[in-house]
């Protein structure tokens, strides 16, 4: 039974990740792109938890760190979005090419 759960969890994780990637490719709103990145992170978290079910507690600890990094990333990323918005009055990622070269 556990084996089935883990398989399903991994499949869901893969699907979630694919959806996240599609979102990043599809959307131009920076905040939505960000949400999709969060989606990808959570997909990874799910697979880590699933594997930890098999291999011990370390997987869960890594999820813990991923969450911390996600929090930091969200804080900085949103601050950047605010700063850019002030400048362009827009959050369209296709217009953000100021770091090009």
């Amino acid at each position: 039974m556990t084996s089935t759960l883990i398989r399903v969890a991994l499949l869901v994780s893969a699907a979630l990740f694919a959806i996240g990637v599609t979102g990043v490719l599809l959307r131009r709103n920076a905040i939505v792109v960000f949400l999709c990145v969060e989606l990808m992170l959570n997909a990874v978290n799910l697979s880590l938890v699933a594997f930890s079910r098999l291999l011990g507690i370390d997987g869960q600890i890594i999820v813990f760190f991923v969450m911390a990094v996600a929090a930091a990333e969200a804080a900085v990323g949103l601050a950047i979005i605010i700063a850019v918005f002030r400048h362009y009055e827009d959050v369209d990622v296709d217009r953000f090419d100021l770091l090009k070269w």
């Binding site: 990740f17 694919a18 959806i19 990637v21 599609t22 599809l26 959307r27 939505v32 369209d92």
Partner: peptide, 22 residues
Amino acid sequence: ELPDFRSAMARLLAGAFGIALA
């Protein structure tokens, strides 16, 4: 409601990529 979806071509590409990955 920003026009924040990409063009049809890009949508197709994005969907193809997502499905391929999954």
